[in-house]
Simulated scan of single mutants.
Amino acid sequence: MAVRFIPCDAVIGAEGGGVSLRQLPDAVTIEAVEEGLEHYGGLIFRAQEITPEEQVAWSRALGPLALTQRVGARLPHLPEIFIVGNTIDPPVTFSPKTEQDDLEWHTDHIHHEITARASMLVAKATPSHGGDTLFACMYTAYDHLSPDQKATVDGLRVIHSVSGLRAYLRGQGHEATANQPYEKPDIAVERPLVRHHPRTGRKALYFGSHITVGVVGWHEDQARRFIRDLTAHACQPAFQYRHQWQVGDAVLWDNRRVLHAGTLYDMERETRLMHRTTFQETEELRP
């Protein structure tokens, strides 16, 4: 069956058909997935009842995989699987404390020496309410800046550090998660705020609402206000797709042009378990 994509009713996202994650993709399927990934930003594959081994094998066919630096959150017999949810101690969560709190918008591994070009979550257990994931299109966010704003952001370099994520998690009451050790020491990484997608050359904003902790050459307070205002613009509802998870859903997204954020769920009474594979960046970022 040929691969096909049906666009979601949003500026981003498409449901994919003709793809089984149980079967290793051939060259035609890989090219179709890569093209769809850039074009739509996120691809949803429903009813994928797969094992962790099958998830890793399918993911590896698309390119090299990266391991999470949170050693305690790796699946013990298959470290390429990053366990996201509240089934391990401490839990891995990026969710706010209340509906009124800020979301933690980010693109995976932006604070690492080598970033992530894409990620895939497979839902293994979902809460009865909440726990959705929001995805925001950074092509659209950049395109809707004014000419003066584009001139400003095109010339900026920003600083990313896990210290920003840790501060957010502490503020949401996730103290144990915030203190979870990483395999490597925390570092600060400097990158352009605007990146060109290596497949098309299109410009996208490339930052995170909390993982981005500074702007090169700016005062800390000025940088914080700027990132807050940029997040409000870039992640506004009109630029979003909301995914309401069902067990067996697999969502693959392009970290080069998409931000995502987890939403609130009752961690005390509900179970949420996701298995993530993370695709290592293979292209150099250019200003």
Rank of each mutant, 00 (worst) to 15 (best):
D148M: 13
A151E: 13
A151Y: 02
A151L: 10
T152H: 09
D154V: 00
R157P: 00
R157N: 13
V158T: 14
S161Y: 07
V162Q: 13
G164C: 05
L165R: 12
A167G: 09
L169D: 00
Q172C: 13
G173M: 05
H174S: 09
A176M: 12
T177D: 04
T177S: 12
A178Q: 04
A178S: 12
P181D: 06
Y182T: 15
P185G: 12
D186P: 06
D186R: 06
V189K: 11
R191H: 14
R191V: 05
R191Y: 01
V194M: 03
R195P: 06
R199L: 13
R202V: 00
L205R: 02
L205M: 11
F207W: 01
F207Q: 00
H210W: 11
V213T: 15
V216Y: 07
W218N: 07
Q222V: 14
Q222G: 15
A223T: 04
A223I: 10
R224H: 14
R225D: 14
D229R: 15
L230S: 01
L230P: 00
T231Y: 10
T231N: 05
C235P: 06
P237F: 05
P237E: 10
H243C: 02
H243E: 09
Q244F: 07
W245M: 07
G248I: 11
D249S: 02
W253V: 03
D254C: 09
V258R: 00
V258S: 05
H260Q: 10
H260I: 01
A261Y: 00
